[in-house]
Design a protein around this nucleic acid. Structure first.
Lengths: 388, 388
DNA sequence: CTGTTAGCGCTTTCAG
DNA sequence: CTGAAAGCGCTAACAG
């Protein structure tokens, strides 16, 4: 569609829906004027004589009348609708945030229009357009990694907006999400404390996505503070199978090298690959005398989709016992984490959603604050994968 | 709220949103009447002189005009909105269906309002009310196990509706979902062919939910056809922790009995529990002389949430090797299925969603058919859990 | 306490 | 080809 403001003419002539009762019908039925009905609907109950009120109530019941929100909205200039733009419902994180959003909306009398961009920037643009066209009073945006262009209608001059999980470059708006820096530090420190000295941070392409950027940066910082341990970042573009293959192959080489070098129990070819490139600068002395030597390599997944991809690969490669071979920690705590026994950092997803709506509500009601950030802490959940 | 048609008065006086350009503004800017603008918007392009058209285009661009859908809807009597009422977004099934719905809506120029009841009947009622209030042209309902009462506004006399996954007792409407009978048969037959002779069908309470009913019934029928194998149904109310405990304990007893009785490798107390009640009538001769004897018990989960609960329990009880102890098969194919190596029957979720919208669209356009059912086949995906 | 009168932003006859 | 006028269902002054 070249011009988004133009739409194709409706194919079929409107087959009139079964007409519902209108306020006029009710007024007639109750033998009064529309105004009184309107007053009743809006709770101006005190100004109505009990007698009239009863008649109105009866009429409404008899006609099964339900006020038309569209018309109300048109007149009032407000429709209690807010848009909720989601990047990816496939990600459990999104669904959880949504629960918080719904609860808050319920509490505040708002109705969220949920729009699912399904990772397509074009969809995102289209939905944003649609939302403004329906005159939503505000939007909560879990944006794809986009810039000012598609997000132009919101924020600053446009409709009130609050960002979730990620901030967007050109856009000044409230934002609520995980305290990424603290979370990444928490995870890294845990891994270090458990004695891992070769840690891979695995993340989707992060140039566009602020939260990923922050996590990766915090990871690098945390690793830098710790000498004698090595930290690397592996970028996995989950949308590109070839890229994923390449990345996983790189990982495999490292794991194999570390495994044969460090695992004294598997007495196969320990000596032969002692000079493997990757594990060269790890100090063997770090590892205290456990009965089962630790896997030397730990994987730190930046979010659940990455963790799932990694887990699937590791399982395919090392079988059901993969957890003993490589440690896996992930930000996000999907329901299968417990099943796979991986350590996670759970985000306060419900609260994130709830706060987002509260922020938006304040903005809608015209509270004048400047753009705020609300960073909520994550919670480390230690499971077998990284413990002992 | 006693009376749903009444709403609390707005707390704050409407702080006027930054007013957007209206059709009148555009008309003035273009030096013409509203009618021509309207014609332009509705693609009646042929009746406009190229000159006027250019002026209109310019005016629209200059004012960044976007027609107000609410107003259009009010006038036209149609707003291209449909409701999508979801029982539980936490279930991957739901999200997948949603993708199909969205695609179809996109193709047909509809805008889905997604409402998430989060397994609360009250929410379902509330949303349904809201949807009719916004005068959606139709609804797609993935209902909780409800009866006519809350669903009264839809179907028959009310707005067009199509049911997804489940039919509802009092309600005549189109319905699209899995061919439950065939799917349950497929699963049962697979288990039987693999040599399992003690099969538990595990399902949430199914009096209210037609799809669960059908699956359970088909399972029982399929088992009845097969002599020498035993089939049982275990009901697990996932919302009730105590009930789940009870059910799982029952399961444990059966597994222990079967395990000690059949698994010659674990030479612990084979004899002592040979007279265990449950496994008594299983014929040991059925099991061909494999190197690793098959686990005798198979679990058939009626859907993914049940399968997850089972898997979590089994893992907690039998450790990472639980898959060797008990076979697990599930209807639904969540992303962790591959990770856990469980066999599944994948539903054609995308198609289900897509078809649902197509059905609804036909209904909206007034195609006069009688209530139809569309049953789509599931696909068996065999994984380690039940193979060999 | 109650009804009359204007519109909200748009579409749609019906005349030019 | 173009525009004026009459509403869609509802709310909000403004009088009674």
């Amino acid at each position: 569609m070249t011009d988004p403001t133009r739409e194709a003419p409706l194919t079929t002539p409107p087959p009139p829906l079964p007409r519902r009762a209108t306020i006029t019908d009710v007024a007639r039925e109750a033998g009064t004027g529309k105004t009184s009905i309107s007053r009743y609907l809006n709770g101006e109950t005190s100004v109505l004589s009990p007698e009239l009120r009863a008649r109105i109530e009866a009429a409404i019941a008899r006609l099964d009348y339900q006020p038309n929100q569209m018309a109300r909205g048109l007149k009032r200039g407000r429709n209690r609708l807010i848009g909720m733009l989601l990047a990816d419902l496939t990600n459990p994180y999104t669904v959880e945030v949504l629960q918080g959003v719904e609860a808050a909306c319920h509490a505040l009398g708002l109705m969220p229009l949920i729009c699912h961009a399904a990772n397509e920037v074009e969809m995102e643009r289209r939905y944003l357009q649609l939302l403004t066209t329906y005159r939503v009073e505000g939007v909560i945006v879990n944006a794809l990694g986009v810039r000012e262009e598609t997000l132009r209608p919101v924020g600053d001059g446009g409709i009130p907006a609050v960002l979730v999980d990620r901030s967007v470059d050109g856009l000044v708006a409230d934002m609520v999400g995980l305290d990424n820096r603290a979370a990444a530090e928490l995870g890294t420190r845990h891994l270090l404390e458990q004695g891992f000295d070769d840690i891979w941070f695995v993340v989707q392409p992060f140039e566009q996505v602020s939260s990923r950027q922050l996590r990766e940066l915090a990871f690098r910082d945390a690793m830098r503070a710790q000498r004698a341990a090595r930290g690397r970042t592996l970028v996995l573009n989950l949308a590109d199978a070839a890229d994923v293959e390449r990345g996983l192959a790189e990982l495999d080489r490292a794991i194999d090298a570390a495994g044969s070098d460090g695992d004294v129990a598997s007495a196969t070819n320990a000596a032969s690959s002692a000079n493997a490139t990757n594990a060269a600068n790890a100090s063997p002395a770090d590892n205290p005398g456990n009965s089962t030597p630790l896997p030397r390599i730990a994987l730190f997944a930046a979010n659940a989709p990455v963790a799932l991809r990694l887990a699937l690969h590791l399982k395919a490669r090392y079988g059901v016992g993969w957890q003993a071979r490589v440690a896996l920690l992930s930000i996000d705590d999907p329901d299968w984490a417990e099943l796979a026994g991986i350590t996670t950092i759970r985000q306060p997803t419900y609260d994130i959603g709830y706060r987002a709506v509260e922020f938006l509500h304040e903005r809608i009601e015209g509270v004048p604050t400047t753009a705020r950030d609300c960073l909520l802490p994550g919670e480390l959940i230690v499971r077998a994968s990284t413990s002992r």
